[in-house]
Nucleic acid binder design. Structure first.
Lengths: 204, 204
DNA sequence: CCCCGAAGTAAACAACTGTTTACTTCGCGT
DNA sequence: ACGCGAAGTAAACAGTTGTTTACTTCGGGG
């Protein structure tokens, strides 16, 4: 027999997993599923692929998340929580660097771009879709609010266009690997994005 | 029995179909499939759904397009052909109204936004994916070329960001129905998009 | 008019999907 | 050390997928 059979399958994380730990298993599933759902979409991703990549049995998805749909909803909730954290204290000055970091930056726990991409994926379930839609809308409202004191109705439209540009860039980078956008660094993007923010939300 | 059994199923087009015509059947399938693939993605769309909506038997998809994959490739080719037509004679002045029309306008033959959205959908087939990627890149190159005579390397990056914004707006409109962006008219969008084009590609 | 090939159809096919079941194996508190 | 409940597993399940088959029906040229 192999000398170390306990971690025979692919590890679901960078760190080695304890042999039996429901919490770690759940997190491994969440991490793998978030990436796959974000990059390939809901329908193209099978539960067996997720389980295999996480080094976990398929049945545990149903056990811990009720269903594939439940797993997706959990991924989405985690993404929303993560995104809300640094989008509530936004201002017109920090917006451009924030966007650049969200698109091309990396942080402590992992890679961010996946998180943003998940908002564009649908499971088909109407209720879960509404979570997604409501959150996108609240983000655009926050961006519009940061733009200026005046509540000009077109400001919200312009904020949504800026949001669309952010999501589009993420899509072209991660899902389509369009060069040179896909290889652009955080600093490469800062200039154009600053112009973007200024043109859409800056005071004329 | 019903008084008119020949067009019993849902019509695949606005016009009534002749009872037996391979060309019309193929076009009906193409039209329905393009819309479904664009709006819901490749994996979420069933060949039976496409056939039913087109009022056609499922087996005819395999007959006329070899496979679901072949049907998708045919949709993509048609979309590319359509998009190339009015993107090769683009200039910096007409770019903003062109984009606005592509996103919110309607034309002679049907609705345009679907066409643009199809470029974001993947069937998983690597070869077909390359068609998609190559075309997106060629579009961004054409936009960069229209921007100015100088071949500054950052110009291509900025053109791709503009392309990303265009695709993102289409996505937020058609696939997510984010208001007020989803309800914005061609004229509503012209102002912000003009600012966008100017900020990214205009000479400073 | 009539018939032959094209156009269309219903049913069956195997592969794959998400989910459940019955079972085994481990780790931890006593 | 031991056993009991939690954690994990393999196999089977029913439904759906894309595709193929054998068949019927139409319609236009001779």
């Amino acid at each position: 027999m192999p000398e170390n059979a306990t971690v025979a399958a692919a590890d679901g994380a960078t760190s080695a997993r304890r042999r039996r730990d429901a919490t770690q298993t759940r997190q491994a599933l969440l991490r793998v599923a978030s990436r796959r759902f974000a990059r390939d979409g809901y329908a193209s991703t099978t539960v067996r692929e997720i389980a295999d990549e996480a080094g976990v049995n398929v049945a545990l998805i149903s056990r811990y998340f009720t269903s594939k749909e439940g797993l997706f909803e959990a991924c989405l909730t985690a993404a929303v929580t993560d995104l809300r954290r640094d989008s509530d204290e936004t201002s017109l000055e920090t917006m451009a660097p924030d966007i650049a970091r969200r698109i091309a930056g990396v942080t402590h726990d992992g890679r961010l771009p996946d998180t943003l991409l998940l908002l564009l994926r649908s499971s088909g379930d109407e209720q879960v879709d509404n979570v997604r839609r409501d959150f996108l809308r609240s983000i655009s409202e926050r961006m519009a609010a940061a733009a200026g004191g005046d509540t000009h109705p077109e400001t919200l439209l312009r904020a949504q266009i800026l949001l669309a540009a952010t999501l589009g860039m993420t899509l072209l980078r991660l899902s389509m690997s369009i060069q040179p956008l896909a290889a652009a660094t955080e600093e490469d993007l800062l200039g154009p994005i600053s112009d973007l923010v200024d043109a859409l939300l800056g005071t004329p």
